[in-house]
């Protein structure tokens, strides 16, 4: 194994162990939350709502819940690890090593994307308890999940570097991420909105993520799946480039 590979492996492994060893903090919450969502929206309300876009309500909601869970966990993973490492100074122990900035960024992003993907799988697993889970376009599904978890791992790095206190993380996750996802057509179809709100919704990046994953699962999309995948991939590349530049500048890491 080459030196950079050993370095990358070490940091990715450390970051994965960090969440694998605390399952009650990392794996259990999405299982419980999503069981509740499915019970309420799927079973209790779902029968009254009937079908949307040709599938049962629970199947319609599932992709949105996958997005909500996976991106917030990918974000939380990177932002918390970096912020906590700065808070307790142990991130210094990584900085003083010969790891390249690119390698450090890649490690945090990869581990966070894996965390997001694991969460996505857990949510699908919970979904399977309540209903069948169609997979119409496996490529789109995989590509979208990969891109959005990478994107939010990358955003988590920015958040973790910017945060000055634990409050910042809460603010980012609860007050920015969640509202965007909730108004990102997770629980309803854009077609039910009046034209004005429909247009406004199209400015919300979450709409594209939810749509991409929904297209992969139930094969129905309200925006062109290729366009949204291309836009999301571009955003991801931009965010990763920003991560790299911030690490190189030592933003939030060095005085």
């Amino acid at each position: 194994m080459s030196r950079p590979t050993v370095q990358l492996r070490t940091l990715v492994r450390r970051e994965i162990l960090r969440f694998v060893r605390r399952p009650y903090n990392t794996f259990l919450p999405p299982i419980i939350t999503n069981t509740l969502y499915f019970a309420v929206f799927g079973v209790i309300l779902g029968s009254r709502i009937g079908s949307i876009a040709g599938v049962s309500y629970i199947q319609f909601v599932l992709p949105g819940l996958v997005v909500l869970g996976s991106i917030s966990d990918a974000f939380e993973n990177a932002s918390f690890s970096i912020f906590h490492g700065r808070w307790n100074d142990y991130i210094d122990a990584v900085i003083v090593t010969p790891m390249s900035n690119l390698n450090m960024v890649a490690s945090y992003v990869i581990a966070s994307a894996i965390r997001g993907i694991v969460t996505a799988l857990l949510i699908v697993g919970v979904g399977l308890v309540f209903t069948s889970v169609p997979i119409s376009h496996p490529f789109y599904l995989a590509a979208n999940v990969l891109v959005i978890t990478t994107l939010f791992g990358g955003l988590g790095i920015i958040g973790g570097l910017w945060a000055d206190d634990f409050d910042y993380l809460t603010v980012m996750n609860q007050f920015i991420l969640r509202p965007l996802v909730f108004f990102g057509a997770v629980f309803y179809s854009l077609s039910v909105l009046p034209p004005l709100w429909r247009q406004v919704s199209l400015l919300n990046p979450m709409v594209y993520m939810v749509n991409g994953v929904r297209y992969g699962m139930i094969g129905v999309s309200e925006v062109d799946p290729n366009t949204s995948l291309a836009v999301l991939s571009t955003a991801t590349v931009a965010v990763l480039a920003a991560d790299y530049l911030l690490f190189r500048r030592g933003y939030g890491l060095t005085e």
Binding site: V6, R9, A93, P98
Partner: peptide
């Protein structure tokens, strides 16, 4: 000042440090 990752047992912290320098496991 102490700047040690408190999540891992100390032997693992050392293994990580070696790994960051490219020393295989």
């Amino acid at each position: 000042e102490f700047n040690v990752d408190r999540f891992f047992p100390i032997r693992e912290v050392l293994e990580h440090k070696a790994g960051y320098h490219g020393i295989p496991s």
